[in-house]
Design a protein around this nucleic acid. Structure first.
Lengths: 109, 109
DNA sequence: ACTATGATTAACCATACGGTTAATTATAGT
DNA sequence: ACTATAATTAACCGTATGGTTAATCATAGT
């Protein structure tokens, strides 16, 4: 069951607002991997990465599981879909208005 | 000319991470209006609304213009489109992986 | 000129974010 | 048992958010 509370959308958009976190999600889109591997491209400390991962996880965009002493991270697409849905619904409304304006201008030169 | 720097995407997603700001954008989707009108549904002070508007404006999601003593707010769809594009590109990658996995499982029962 | 209204700015407060270094936990490997 | 590695937690610092009330600015309206 998916949580549709506004709070979850807050967390999802908040999580997407940092370039390192978007980079992590982009990497995860090509397959699950370890924390060390996710950290490699970014020149911040390990604890900083750990914090970013926690934010992504709390937003429901990612999950972690143990594998020996490593943690394997995996993208969770459902929440991302919800964020996308919100934007799309907004753009749908906006585009409808644009279309109406365009039509009006065409009919009333 | 559109600014495609990561910073702008940071600001856009950050702006979308608060329910009042999403509410304001949703209202603006049905047409431009004044600050007072935007504030009405939300039970926070006028300065609080003013701050939200500034965040939305800095993110490029909205613009303000003077009309007498009022300020008229107007949605700016371009930045929203960029945010949507980022999410869509991610979901495209993710869905491709899901499809590949599904195919693999079908061929290797 | 005066007053009321729309909106912002100033000053303040509490909490969250984003980073650091140092310490801790847990497992791998010899 | 010891050591090295993966990762997190703890403690700290500076800045940004999100809210408040009080003060200011600008225009409308009488």
């Amino acid at each position: 069951m998916v949580n549709h509370s506004p709070r979850q959308l807050d967390l999802a958009f908040g999580a997407l607002s940092h370039p390192i976190r978007r980079g992590i999600l982009a990497r995860l889109a090509s397959g699950e991997t370890t924390v060390a591997e996710l950290a490699r491209p970014h020149k911040v400390s390990a604890p900083a990465i750990s914090k970013h991962l926690r934010i992504l996880e709390q937003a429901g965009l990612m999950s972690r599981r143990k594998r020996g002493r490593e943690r394997v991270c995996r993208l969770e697409a459902e929440r991302m879909k919800e964020a996308q849905n919100w934007i799309e619904s907004q753009r749908a409304l906006w585009n409808r208005r644009l279309d109406a304006l365009e039509k009006y201008l065409k009919e009333n030169p």
